[in-house]
Design a protein around this nucleic acid. Structure first.
Lengths: 265, 265
DNA sequence: GCAGTCGGTTCCGGACAGTCGAACGTTTAT
DNA sequence: ATAAACGTTCGACTGTCCGGAACCGACTGC
């Protein structure tokens, strides 16, 4: 695990959460495997698992521990908490139906990229994650599109914390490459990825922002690389840009109606 | 919180997880509110939050702590982990498009009901949850449909642990009522709910099982009660039954292809 | 049938680490 | 300017988490 500054974190809670990460990585694990993976005593692992199970975060089926459905519940809550979630959801499904590729909407949090709306299998698949967390910002077009809008200091904080590990042979691995890429993204208005996150996959992403310039996240299109020629590329980029406009207009409208309701009261 | 047997659970981890529940209940909370809610020292709460934040489970925006996007990531993983998830997803979207009501698919875990596929806002909305967990089995038609298939001992275990608290004036609150209701469910093949979970809402649910009789979960239709007359009622029930068949056939087919692939290897 | 393995569970003593309270720097509101 | 609230740090006490060993049950295969 790649934790940067363990000062002040509670070791017990951290051990419990690390177990969750291990179960995720192993895609379900037996107690022996967890003892192996964590270097803890069996009784200790047992206590942690019992606690996690008590709260619904872990279930035991057929002598294997798995993550519990509570994560679905809490995940849905997180999704619907954002006031723009309906707009994002609608935009993604529009983009998905118009395009021949897979659409999704992703956000940056704690320097990592999480897909909020889109095909379940695509973005958050367990196969693609590195440690407990999903994609790094520098390997995904979503990440590049988003941090291209950030001030340099914030970008440096993120790469200080997580580094620039390669996901494929085509991944960006140096600061110079990354900052050059971000300049390109700013110039052309969207980010592009060819096999940088997943071998054989091509993707484009565009950041969406509030009128005040805050970045909400990134709209993305992705699919197998072999279908991409110049013509389809151009149409996909145009679709993406129209979707971004759609989203930003939708959010602006949302805020207008919210302000109206506030005035009525 | 309604924890039944706290022996053997790690108090530190439990305190951290309880904080997550509190943040959920308060729909985002400031540190002061969390100190108030937990009766812990400010520095203690701080340590827990820092640990949770380190692992991405909590974020701080504008002096308010919220649940992190990691829950979305893990939730999606849990959803896709089940081998029948594609079938369930497809069935729900079919049912949703055919019906005039909202469709979803829910499972029972640790004696509570969680909606896995369906409209985000409907089933897992923070407004509807009691404590950290979502619906009780006895207030939802999904729950009743599922536990109607369980042996009596298992049903008793669940009500021993969680009790039979009322969600509305129409909720079931006694064991006799519940077991009578479960007999009715078994007889007619589906469960029905009128304002028992949410005031003014009507819903029906049907359990889906494997050929060996294991319960996967429950397919459900729900919507406002005022649209329901005898005719629409009959059509919705028929739709639900067709959907259940669709699901079980889809899963059977899935197992057949899995077996074929195993034979090839 | 029995021996061996693996998972789940319990118990206890010692050492580690979580808890508390107080204090300080900062920001926001009155 | 004052107050209040949040975030953060520090050190000392004490509670509790950790490890080890042992036991039970289920399953496996000689």
């Amino acid at each position: 695990m790649n934790r940067h500054d363990p000062s002040g974190v509670l070791k017990t809670t951290a051990a419990s959460l690390a177990l969750v990460d291990h179960i995720l990585e192993l895609e379900g694990a037996t107690m022996g495997e967890l003892v192996e993976a964590t270097d803890l005593a069996k009784s200790t692992v047992h206590a942690h698992l019992k606690t996690l199970a008590e709260y619904g975060y872990v279930v035991n089926v057929d002598n294997e521990y798995h993550l519990g459905a509570k994560f679905c519940h809490l995940g849905d809550y997180v999704r619907t908490r954002k006031d723009y979630y309906r707009v994002a959801q609608e935009t993604v499904s529009w983009l998905d139906s118009e395009s021949s590729m897979d659409a999704d909407f992703a956000v940056e949090e704690h320097g990592r990229i999480v897909s909020l709306y889109g095909d379940l299998e695509f973005a958050n698949s367990p196969r693609f994650l590195i440690d407990g967390s999903p994609f790094h910002v520098h390997t995904t077009c979503s990440g590049k599109a988003i941090i291209a809008e950030y001030p340099e200091t914030r970008v440096r904080e993120i790469i200080d914390r997580w580094g620039l590990p390669a996901a494929t042979d085509d991944s960006i691995t140096t600061e110079e490459e990354l900052f050059a890429e971000l300049a390109t993204v700013r110039e052309q208005g969207y980010a592009e990825n060819s096999s940088e996150a997943v071998e054989g996959f091509w993707a484009i992403g565009k950041a969406v922002k509030s009128p005040r310039g805050e970045v909400y996240g990134s709209l993305n299109l992705s699919g197998p690389a072999y279908v991409i020629d110049e013509e389809t590329r151009a149409t996909q980029v145009e679709l993406l840009e129209r979707a971004a406009e759609r989203f930003e207009q939708g959010v602006a409208e949302l805020y207008r109606t919210q302000a109206d309701e506030a005035n009525e009261a």
